[in-house]
Nucleic acid binder design. Structure first.
Lengths: 342, 342
DNA sequence: CTGAAAGCGCTTACAG
DNA sequence: CTGAAAGCGCTTACAG
């Protein structure tokens, strides 16, 4: 790769001047600048990232900490981040937080400390207190997206409201036996997303003077939804409606219903959360939450924290107040009034 | 962040010795080494990536060039790569190759030239000749996974064989009117994956002395498969079986069939390619291709090219000859003999 | 407006 | 076995 020195020599200036001409910082004659830029273009010069970083302390790279890349939601968010960052010349360094304790230690105590990124975006991670301390000690801007730790949650959907809205939709249709599939943390779990959705569900039911008609814990996969639904539907007093805390869980519910010979929505109404690509095909009623826009918003928050000028092409969603991300009920064919109103 | 100097001072040695103690290179007294390591641990020292890179020319980061992160297949591969690289202390820098010409130019001519990575893994990308030249000029190991350009395709599934196997399965069941949904490039398209699968399909039919019963082009999404299937099924001589070049396309076919009131597999047999997470729920017969293992194999190939010792926990799949990645037919309930054999 | 020089934090021959 | 010194390729006060 060509170095700054070669460019400087070709343009017959010092390396200092060449650097200024290329970075745009500092005053210099237009003719000089043009000459240097010409030389750089001719040689295909691009500044070495390592050298720039060492000299300036800036990496022009953003770290993204993801639980699992192979989940629809995170892939969407990641795509939103990438789309926003690329035009600004920021790279993405991907940090995969697995469940393996050893690898996790290495991630938080070594990888992240190598100084490879200017800021870190955290995607809905359950972090231990020690890990949060590790992150804090980096001295970098931290942008949490649905992070469990409330202090890190710079950006989030109001998930209690999501749970309430989903449940209210079922109540409005006349359902009285409404079950829930999701997850809940014991005690004061702070900002855990599934726990908040569950709380919204409970609140809406309480408001209507009803008792929950079943709750099952599941990991957020189709398989998990399927199993949970099988368990909940295999009861004497079967629920007439089910609120699944994610679309993938809801897909599992639909597969379970089909297997049990239940017609959706006649025998069972189902609502999810996410706005998954496939939800339209399944006719699934859901609470959309625009994960791509969430990624863009997280990227914008990171850039803002780094003092970058606001990107020109900011989408409306991303331009919204960072603290509150939008969601919207999308009604399809998986929900209807219960067949035999009680 | 603490610097090497601080560690050296605390251990009462020179920076040079501290560096040696921590890197394990060069001979030095056990006691000295221990003292330095102690000091480093006490201070939570981690070497600055930029400084190491500048001094050694190695970044300990691998670039991954992806077309779109939000597709199941690529997310799987990425996960496989990450899982393999993390324990070795290699980071992943994500490069998103969009369709936007400007961003693409910036990616190939600037981002990748910043010297941030030691090698680049290319995931099934259609690259222009100029882009391939750009990549070559980096002077880095390039690992192609299903790359269209044959010279870059260090790793690949035999996609002609995949197409043949899928079609043969339908033939063995007695089907004679077999349609295909995929894509094909004109002329000698080299190593384009969809084109190769199509070729396998054609070969299998020709071998059986049959004509194709319809072919439709679609982008590799559920939506694309749905539309293509609608077009193919809306004909007088409806095919009795359909080979979709991906599981997502096949899901689209299933949705279309359902909408048309066609029973699968009685009225229509469907086979896909991938082994998508959801294929089991759909009862979809498919050719599995283990994308996670493909990612691991690509990571291994990159590490090997960099002279890293073979990772200890190499999975059987990844340990296989790099040139040929495995695939396997998985028969489920979406394929059966045609209802009325002709 | 431009250049010489120091410095960012490592690593690695080269001496001893 | 260990240290002093140079160098990796930039950037940025500091002079002029």
């Amino acid at each position: 790769m060509t170095s700054l020195d070669e460019v400087a020599r070709r343009a017959e200036v010092s390396a200092a001047t060449a650097s200024r001409a290329l970075s745009g910082r500092g005053r210099l004659a237009d003719a000089t600048r043009a000459r240097v830029q010409r030389a750089a273009a001719d040689l295909g010069y691009v500044a070495s990232s390592a050298a720039s970083t060492l000299a300036t302390g800036r990496t022009r790279s953003i770290g993204v900490l993801v639980p699992l890349v192979d989940k629809w939601f995170f892939a969407q968010v990641l795509d939103g981040i990438a789309t926003r960052l690329a035009p600004l010349g920021y790279d993405i360094t991907l940090y995969n937080a697995t469940d393996d304790a050893l690898q996790r230690r290495q991630l938080f105590q070594t990888s992240l400390r190598r100084g490879r990124v200017d800021a870190v975006i955290l995607l809905s991670l359950a972090l231990s207190a020690g890990e949060i301390a590790d992150l804090r000690s980096l001295g970098l801007p931290l942008i949490g997206l649905g992070a469990r730790d409330l202090e890190l949650a710079t950006l989030r959907v109001d998930d209690v409201a999501v749970g309430r809205r989903a449940t209210a939709h079922l109540l409005e249709l006349g359902h009285r036996r409404i079950a829930h599939i999701g997850q809940t943390l014991p005690g004061d779990a702070g900002g855990d997303v599934p726990t908040l959705r569950h709380r919204g569900y409970s609140e809406a039911l309480a408001h209507a003077g009803l008792e929950p008609a079943g709750f099952a814990t599941a990991d957020f996969t189709i398989e998990g939804g399927y199993r949970a639904a099988r368990a909940l539907l295999d009861r004497p007093e079967r629920p007439t409606a089910m609120f699944a805390a994610s679309d993938e869980l809801a897909f599992g519910v639909l597969f379970a219903a089909r297997e049990l010979g239940l017609d959706v929505p006649r025998d069972l109404s189902v609502i999810g959360v996410d706005g998954h690509d496939m939800s339209g095909f399944f006719g699934l009623t859901t609470i959309e939450q625009f994960p791509r826009a969430q990624g863009a918003a997280a990227a914008d928050a990171a850039l803002a924290a780094l003092g970058e000028p606001a990107p020109p092409a900011a989408t409306p969603a991303a331009a919204a107040t960072p603290a509150t991300l939008p969601f919207a009920l999308v009604v399809r064919t998986s929900t209807a009034s219960p067949a035999a109103p009680e």
